[in-house]
Design a protein around this nucleic acid. Structure first.
Lengths: 228, 228
DNA sequence: TAGATTGTTAATCGATTAACAATC
DNA sequence: TAGATTGTTAATCGATTAACAATC
């Protein structure tokens, strides 16, 4: 199966659509496990919180995967979605920062199950060098450029303290890494040709706090308001 | 300082705006540290990747905080934003699932610095009961409802394996928790009156994988395309 | 063929940006 | 007063939803 049927230029596909593709992939895996071989967008919709139209439109960004009057072949669509996401290939990941969060990521099986593999870890603390955590050896960050190249690592994860985050990002980029996941609660500056995603736990918790602050217990009513 | 000047019904404020408020709060803290006392939306814009209009509009959802011709008083605006987010109050958090990720969260200082405190942890594995991790005692989940009530815990974090996530959510909700952060890669079903946010690392990494798959190295060009 | 469902165009909705009157 | 900057209305942009012709 090749990507020859791809019609779209991915530059123009929204991040929201890409995120939904990940969920479609999981949904299709679940259907496959259940032994369901053909599925309509309506059925996919009923098993998720997406509308049938939205699912069809998202897929239409990348080609024509269904049969009118019939629906989608589950295994074919799943393979296509995984290829669109590029998750049919195992991706090698470098972790920088082996503190609490970093060590946890080394043992986080879900990532491995989704075809990502943390193959090296780095920490600026010399006491951690050569420690082995979940089969991964912690290295001196000065060795990062060489190891990234020799191991063909494509993705970097930043799990260092806030003050070291920008420096770490620059190090990863100069080593040729083009896709980076940042866990530090810092807005980093990066060239447009590099993909940076942020996971910011403080923002998530503060969003929950906002809800607690404003949503009275047992509130069910709706008002109108000046602010959309 | 009270919330008396709040004009808006928060039901209608978008999640995007709320997330930006967290970043405005940080920005204002940094300005305060620098000794800057008054700031314009233009200056805030230049120190972030938000437009001045967007900042003014976000704030306008909640009242009038600036002086025309002058700008915003940094400390006043910071306090107002923190009250809007409800982060002026310390919030107690219960963690469920003390595996790799859960243990890491117990030691994650950034949360404490943002006024969140994990006061108890639960795990279904009896071998972990009564273990103390970062001053927090791991408990039997059957004690959760009682402890949530006695400790006045408002927020729950789900860090259990995927198959236990829905059950954990239901347990938290039945104990009276209304705001929940879910780390399991599972889409959970929840009543409309409960706020659930998901942190899904697989989706983030798959978004990076998509970029690697589609963005050729050194690609700078733009095409037009059928898909917006 | 009749019924079902896709792929896509047109309509709607919501969020962002531009513009500007109000006012410090 | 003149210059600056807010708060807000109107215009634009982008994403979602509805509708339907194409077609299995």
């Amino acid at each position: 199966m090749s990507e020859s049927q791809l019609i779209n230029n991915p530059d123009t596909v929204s991040e929201a659509t890409i995120n939904r593709l990940s969920l479609y992939s999981r949904l299709l895996s679940a259907l496959e496990t259940e032994g369901i071989t053909v599925v309509s967008s309506r059925e996919l919709s009923s098993r998720s919180h997406f509308t049938a139209t939205q699912i069809r439109r998202d897929l239409a960004c990348f080609g024509q995967f269904g049969k009118r009057g019939i629906g989608y072949e589950v295994s074919t669509l799943k393979r296509a979605v995984n290829e669109i996401l590029g998750v049919h290939i195992r991706r090698k990941v470098a972790l920088v920062g082996v503190g609490n969060l970093g060590s946890a990521l080394l043992g986080y099986r879900v990532l491995y199950a989704h075809n990502f593999e943390i193959v090296t870890a780095f920490d600026s603390d010399p006491q951690k060098w050569n420690q082995v955590i979940n089969n991964v050896v912690v290295q001196d960050p000065s060795r990062l450029p060489q190891i990234v190249r020799s191991e063909q690592i494509e993705i970097g994860i930043i799990a260092v303290p806030p003050h070291a985050a920008q420096r770490t990002l620059d190090l990863l980029v100069s080593a040729g890494i083009r896709a980076i996941l940042n866990f530090s609660p810092t807005r980093l500056v990066v060239s447009r040709h590099i993909k940076l995603r942020n996971v910011d736990l403080s923002i998530e918790l503060e969003g929950l706090s906002y809800f607690l602050q404003h949503e009275p217990i047992n509130a069910h009513k709706k008002h109108d308001s000046r602010c959309k």
